[in-house]
Design a protein around this nucleic acid. Structure first.
Length: 858
RNA sequence: GCGAGAAUGGCGGAAUGGGCAGACGCGCCAGACUUAGGAUCUGGUACCGAAAGGUGUGGGGGUUCGAAUCCCCCUUCUCGCACCA
């Protein structure tokens, strides 16, 4: 522990000890002023805010473009991860704006959540105070980043005028049957003291998404949203350009599988049936036993007295097992015989009914037909308890007519055919599936069924700092929704925070006790609050008319935003954010849009057209940044040393944005040098000697400008900031080389303007400063993107490569319009080529465009 | 186990409708200017070799005049899911 800390501190000291005393220091050249990023950045931040340069313009002649970055949680300080997420997003939005779009780029705070409550307990203050103090600090930091946020449209999700509408969505969903309350076993985090949605339980170890504590099961009365009703819709990704990875993850999470559900009669119990789900009806003749989940209600009914003791012991053990940590490596299939038998639906054979915890109550019917020859789990189970394992499918055309010699378990679908299955023998997949399903349907004991892995969204949280669920429980009237006119159900400002692990709302008398809206009698409020993912499921619409009907009494007919503004601005044209939200936020957001469309407040179209997921910025050690590792990079310190422009640009230069990558503390020096060069190149020079006329050099510089422009414009659209910056650096190198001959000429000035314009989205401060020094009073951020002229980008000579048998031999300059025959002649004339061709016969010469000739010999 | 993606110098990475591998930057080496250099400027920097030349994009095959790029097999790594019937 001590070692780790010492190492961590050492690293931090090292990282912080090299402030650049004067980052603008460079020796040569005529200098008017030095580059002082801190001074110019402070000045421009203030000025842009004052001029409202970036605020929302509902109507404009330019086409609308809704550019969105995921809203941050106000944790207190802006982390380098926030910079990595937001600075490139901002650059993209700025680029769109320069390209003639009316860009809306809002920001807000996802302000409910547990850290505020923990801080409240620790400091004995209200979470609201902690949260708003953090927001104030983060607003300043976000401004220092140079982002073009439309601050006037900011929303804060813990504001009652926001969560009033979150409550409204709950009431509407309740009316439509999308919200419901259920008593069932749910995932509970003993550290956060609250239940969690299935999506918030991570991995095999089943740990809490927030604190990594293993979750336990608890049976509780909880509110849920019927997201499973939208499973089919959620599987469709029409009209949206989302990364393949996200679509695959969501598709897998939803986990659609097609199969059949059918009944088996229980032997000796007329009328008693056992329902199972299977995706492999083609293997039904291999059914040699059934397995019930230990929690299955039928277990009590069918268990014979002789087996009762063993069965109950197993049930108790299974229950305990799900409450204790689930060990990864103990996936053994064990179970207990109930003593009862079911009848095979097609053969009438007796098959024993077992219970085993590898069958889950929450999936399908909680009961399975076991076909040990063709399912790995059933196979393991059968081996363990010496149950028969008859093969009933085999690879098409395989030798053994009845599957003899088949390696078991054989689980393939494609290329399999039925055997040992009476009149079904020889039927190949997928006809085998169809035939058995038809037979079960004909007998009236089963039907096709689609099952999903997706569960309904559990939204109740036993925490205080969240949106109160607007329902009241009355002894006489039962559950009563809070009338719309009474919204919002406000969180009390005087709740007492104690480390009891329970929500202070339960002990807040004024909050808890309420008159029933129905009968006027004494009643109690729901004290659970909503999952904070609800706040972030609709904030993108709220941005367009923030705190709609603020302070006003609302009715059932109101909608949560101004549709006149919101409808024309949908969908969100570009959304950017971390891949870690691939399932949670990005699936909930789609669900919310679908459900709200059903409620009738939104057009039924995809809410987010284009999505981009950035990668994660890692510590110097290539590990995830964390305080315990001591590899956290502090953006404020970097801004102090290098300026925001350099930090922004360096983060974009590290590598492809979607890839993320480790922080290299030395690497930023290169970007600082680049900014210094830009400063030096872009600062107007007074009274220079009359520039020499060098038409050829001027043409070359103009060519370089337009080549760079083509590359940079293309890269902005594809979020390829790293290569865009590399192109700008190359251009910088060319400018430095051309400076002695061209500085002050029209070609030079155009090139410098181009450099500043192309860099403006990435580095808004330095470009604004230099632009306005050249043209006082004009913001660079209101300039149109420079037009690319392919004619000017054209060079008058291209390099042609000469290969012999595909190997590089020589290169030469040729005209861009060179003809194929000419290329061949030129290539064969080269001395190096002649030399290499001595005593060899040329068989073929292959010219490629105007860039390469391959000579094939012998 | 299933699904998705990746593997290129000392490092981050460029180049994939096949056509000069290593753009750009970091680091490193040498030099210049300097009292000084962790500033700036100039040159160099994939590997082997004195050179000519040869070899190189995780490994092995293949297609092609030509492969980092396309096809097949394998290895390793990252991410997601995981007793889902």
């Amino acid at each position: 522990m001590t070692d780790v800390m010492a190492a961590g501190l050492g690293r931090m000291n090292n990282g912080g000890q090299r402030p650049r005393a004067d980052p603008s220091a460079h020796a040569t050249g005529v200098m008017s002023t030095k580059y002082h990023p801190r001074e110019i950045e402070a000045r421009w931040s203030a000025q842009w805010a004052e001029q409202e340069l970036y605020e929302f313009q509902e109507h404009a002649a330019r086409p609308k473009f809704y550019w969105l970055t995921m809203l941050p949680y106000p944790s207190g300080d802006l982390h380098i991860g926030h910079w990595y997420a937001m600075a490139p997003s901002d650059a993209g939005a700025r680029f769109k704006r320069m390209n003639g779009y009316n860009v809306f780029f809002p920001i807000g705070f996802d302000a409910f959540g547990l850290p505020a409550e923990n801080a409240a307990i620790k400091n004995n203050t209200h979470p609201k105070i902690w949260t708003y103090a953090n927001i104030e600090r983060m607003r300043r930091q976000l401004r220092s980043m140079g982002t073009m946020f439309a601050w006037k449209n900011e929303i804060i999700s813990c504001d009652p005028d926001y969560y009033k509408w979150s409550q409204w969505t709950f009431l509407k969903f309740l009316e439509r049957g999308i919200a419901y309350r259920e008593h069932a076993p749910v995932d509970f985090c003993p550290s956060c003291n609250t239940t969690l949605a299935r999506e918030q339980v991570i991995g095999e170890e089943r740990v809490c998404e927030r604190c990594e504590t293993p979750v336990i099961k608890k049976a509780l009365n909880q509110w849920k949203y019927r997201i499973t009703d939208y499973a089919e819709q959620l599987l469709k990704f029409e009209d949206i350009e989302w990364p393949e990875a996200v679509r695959t993850m969501q598709t897998n999470w939803i986990g659609r599988s097609e199969g059949v559900e059918f009944d088996l009669a229980v032997d000796g119990r007329p009328g008693q049936t056992l329902r199972v789900f299977t995706t492999r009806p083609d293997t039904i003749f291999g059914l040699t036993f059934c397995v019930l989940s230990p929690e299955h209600p039928l277990v009590r009914e069918v268990t014979t007295p002789a087996q009762r003791g063993a069965v109950e012991a197993y049930q108790a053990a299974a229950e305990r097992k799900s409450e204790i940590e689930r060990m990864a490596d103990t996936q053994e299939q064990d179970g207990v015989f109930t003593g009862a038998y079911a009848l095979h639906p097609l053969t009438g054979a007796n098959v024993p009914i077992w219970i085993a915890d590898y069958v889950l109550m929450g999936y399908g019917t909680g009961a399975i037909m076991a076909v040990p020859a063709h399912d790995t789990r059933d196979y393991a189970f059968a081996l363990r308890y010496r149950l028969p394992v008859p093969p009933v499918i085999r690879p098409v055309g395989s030798a053994g007519a009845n599957g003899e010699g088949l390696e078991l378990p054989y689980t393939a679908k494609e290329g399999s055919e039925m055997c040992n299955s009476g009149r079904f023998d020889g039927l190949a997949w997928p006809r085998s599936f169809e035939a058995v399903v038809k037979e079960l349907e004909r007998r009236g004991i089963g039907e096709r069924k689609v099952n999903y892995r997706l569960r309904d969204w559990l939204i109740s949280r036993q925490r205080m700092w969240g949106t109160p669920i607007p329902v009241i429980y009355c002894k006489t009237c039962g559950m009563v929704p809070v009338p719309y006119e009474h919204l919002p159900v406000r969180l009390p400002d005087d709740a007492v925070f104690k480390p009891t692990g329970e929500s202070p709302l339960k002990y807040h008398k004024a909050f808890l006790h309420v008159d029933c809206p129905c009968c006027g009698g004494p009643a109690e409020r729901e004290t659970d609050t909503m999952d904070t993912f609800i706040c972030s499921s609709w904030y993108m619409y709220a941005y367009l008319s923030p705190y709609w009907k603020k302070g006003q009494r609302i009715t059932a007919d109101d909608v949560p935003w101004n549709r006149g503004v919101v409808d024309p601005w949908l969908p969100i044209d570009q959304y950017t954010g971390g891949i870690e939200h691939a399932i949670l936020h990005l699936m909930y957001l789609r669900f919310y849009a679908m459900a709200l469309a059903d409620v009738g407040v939104m057009p039924p179209k995809a809410p987010v057209r284009r999505l981009f997921n950035q990668g994660m910025i890692l510590g110097e050690d290539n590990e995830k940044m964390s305080k315990s590792r001591g590899n956290v990079v502090n953006p404020d310190a970097l801004v102090r040393d290098y300026g925001a422009d350099t930090v922004r640009a360096y983060l974009m230069f590290i590598g492809p944005w979607d890839q993320g990558g480790p922080w290299n503390p030395k690497g930023i020096e290169g970007m600082a040098r680049f900014m210094n060069d830009v400063w030096y190149l872009g600062t107007p020079v007074e009274a220079e000697a009359a520039p020499a006329q060098d038409a050829e050099a001027a043409r070359q510089l103009t060519g370089a400008l337009h080549q760079t422009l083509a590359k940079v414009s293309e890269d902005y659209l594809a979020f390829k900031y790293n290569t865009l910056l590399a192109a700008l650096m190359s251009f910088r190198n060319q400018l430095k080389a051309a400076r002695p001959t061209l500085q002050g000429t029209p070609a030079w000035n155009t090139a410098i303007d181009g450099l500043l314009l192309m860099l403006a989205p990435v580095a808004p401060f330095i470009t604004e400063e230099l632009w306005q020094r050249r043209r006082p009073g004009e913001s660079i951020h209101l300039q149109p993107w420079p037009r690319h002229d392919p004619a000017l980008a054209r060079t008058d000579a291209v390099t042609m490569v000469i290969q012999i048998n595909g190997k590089f031999r020589d290169r030469m300059e040729v005209s861009p319009d060179v003809k194929a025959e000419e290329m061949q002649t030129l290539a064969l004339e080269r001395p190096k080529v002649q030399e290499a061709l001595a005593n060899r016969t040329v068989r073929k010469v292959i010219p490629v465009g105007n860039k390469l000739v391959n000579i094939v010999v012998q």
